[in-house]
Design a protein around this nucleic acid. Sequence first.
DNA 1: ACCGCCGGGTGCC
DNA 2: ACCGCCGGGTGCC
Length: 862
Amino acid sequence: MNSNSCCHPSSALIDFLDVGGTMTISQEIANLTEDSGQDLPEENVQIGSIQGTVVGLRYYTGTVNRGEMVSLVRQPQNPYDRNAVMVANVFGSQVGHIKKELAAPMAYIMDNNLARVEGVVPYGEKNTFSMPVNLTFWGREENREAVHNQMRCHGFRLGTEFKGSLILVLSGGFLFLFYFFYTGPNTVSIKISLKNAFDKLFDDLMEDKTREMEPAEAVCTSLLPHQKQALSWMTSRENSNDLPPFWEEKHGLYFNVLTNFAIKERPEKVLGGILADDMGLGKTLTTIALIVSNFHNGKPLPLEQCHIKNITFQEGSSMSSTCRKKSTSKGTGKVPSGGGGGSGARATLIVCPLSVLSNWLDQFEQHIQADVTLKVYLYYGAERIRSVNLLSEQDVVLTTYNVLSSDYGNKGNSPLHKVSWLRVVLDEGHVIRNPNALQSKAVLELQSERRWILSGTPIQNSLKDLYMLLSFLKLKPFDLKGWWNRIIQRPVTMGDRVGLKNLQALVKGITLRRTKNSKVAGRTLVQLPERRVFVQHVRREGRKIKTACLYRYFEEGTVMTNYADVLAILVRLRQHCCHPSLVGKYTRADDPGTPSELRERLINKITLVLNSGSDEECAICLDSLRQPVITYCAHVYCRPCICEVIRSEKQARCPLCRAPIKTKELVEYPGEEMEAGPATGENCRSSSKVDALMSNLLKLRSEDPTVKSLVVSQFTRFMDLIEVPLREYGFSFTRLDGSMAQKTRAKAIQDFQDSSPGSPTIMLLSLKAGGVGLNLTAASHVFMMDPAWNPAAEDQCVDRCHRLGQSRDVVITKFIVKDSVEENMVKIQKKKQELVDKAFGVKKPQDLKQARIDEIRALMEI
DNA sequence: ACCGCCGGGTGCC
DNA sequence: ACCGCCGGGTGCC
């Protein structure tokens, strides 16, 4: 199948045109497809297909091509027929209506969410009055009968004529193969080859992205070759006049090779993309260079406007550094012109997690010449000035996702949403992967000419993570869930090679990704110092703990019904490995007790589950938990997800253990709770791990007093306990954990990174504290006090010091208690890594459940 | 729409 | 003729 003219490198880098006036209908389609949440594999069964008729063509301007995909949108408010089904092309322009006789059963099916209907116009695209449309119904297996019945009642018979058939469509001189791939719910064979292809998704992204560009002179740091390449690529993405991915110009028309859509007007450009470099390659520096080098209309920052030097980083205050300017010839020559467009937009908005806010400020100060005027405003804190004018006049506005979403939630009064930005940059952009999160909705509403996503991990769990990124970039039609599912998500999930190729072409066109191992001219991008890992086994505390009740759960097959108990026991076993006094009291929930007691216990459980570091996901949406609630059977879900389950079933049952559940019995997560107070009394005694740590630290200090170390634990109370001997032996240390406010956090980081004598040599770091951007390169030793469930979390933590800027070899010491739950956790880490590799995109709740059981079983060595 | 359908005009051969 | 047939007007939902 060499049908993919869409994979031409030249055609992949194309820009999109936003067709004016179609937004309402697009929006309508978006709204209609948004809440159906039909992206789980079991909802993607083909129920049947039928040929229908599109009528009323002459009343609408929307046109289609031979073989073009169309969308079907219900119009319940239509004054002539409340069953009306509108037919629209990819850009949302109405083409016509489905003939009313067929619209009647379709309306019922669509309104009751029995199936999604998708259309393709096989021929007759030039007809004046009506044209045929091949309709395919997709839905859950359990709705198959209902859909067929409804159609039969109205005299239609759903067939499977497109099943596994090849339809050749000749169009515009191109040969397109449309392979209507039908597979049942269980497709195993193709998924294996899919995995390899998926791994290659980001391969070859470097091709043709090796041109270098010098930054504007305002940047005082010299860029590494790969950063100059990124700058060149980003600049060309912003100034490019190319068509967006999958668009080609043919005979004076613009033609989308994926959907067969064609239009006279040039599709709107997509200026920007995804910078997906590994962390530590300098995404921040590159972005700063981009901001000043490709300012307005492809020119570098105008350096001649110089004012008073005044760099302050107070929250909610404007800071600007001043300048005396020289020539700006450097870096201007290679900038392709044409982008930007003279709209007058000036300001770049950078949205980032709180944890890296101070890093951005540091980096601006560090990399921008001191005599350059760059107006940077930190839109953060209660004192932030909510003035659209003030914000528009800045060069850079920095804010956090939290500030952005809280302003956005404050209906109609979000200054950030009233500014026409030149450029919006989402740092750690993968955080918007959940479309239901307020912060995701908030970023989609920002007005900007250019849009960038910075993320070392653009796809974290599954393919659908990419949807929100494309949506933010306004990469049509993938910014609408229905089209994304249809053209990419479902074909790829079902193992369709063409779908995968399209996905690769799509990603390739808008993404630059290099890893630490990528090479430029035969050399790796970054020569990082070595990184050595030692596992140090330590003695167990006291006798081996009995876990009889866990064995019982396995024998009874009630592991999942007692999941919270199981986790609670495991947490305590792990705590015991660290220090016996960490272990809190524990009562098992044999007796449900009175409702208030039960409630209290459930709150305890959900707190434990969410703080257990087990990286919980909602088993329904398979995404990270939002508005977590716990059921009486102690399983944790997103509130909207589980409410939907309860609403849609008569006798609702817990998806994980099948226990009956009710909405009013769901218990909410009350939020972070502070755990026990400071260590006192018997807590002050040491433990094997603490002893081992101290002897390491003392040895290091005697060898080289300037060496700095990270001491990492998942238990903040363990960190409390470690503080005692650290003080006792006169170590100067700082601490960073999730509970700290931004100011103290930034102070802790700054103190630790400071190399002057007397600065802290140790940082107590909670494993989950801070985002990935955190820079702790002052440390060259890492002590992992307790193993994490997720090996990636440990790696990420180490990467905070083993990154660009690290000059010493990094030594990692992991303490593992012999003959304990920790040893088994290490085994699971390895397994889990394999699982993550395999499970890309095709996770089912059942698999997830079994994986959990297997995991716990392995932990207990049962 | 080179259709179907409607409704007015018309009416043996 | 309370029909058939003809031919003009008309046409999404």
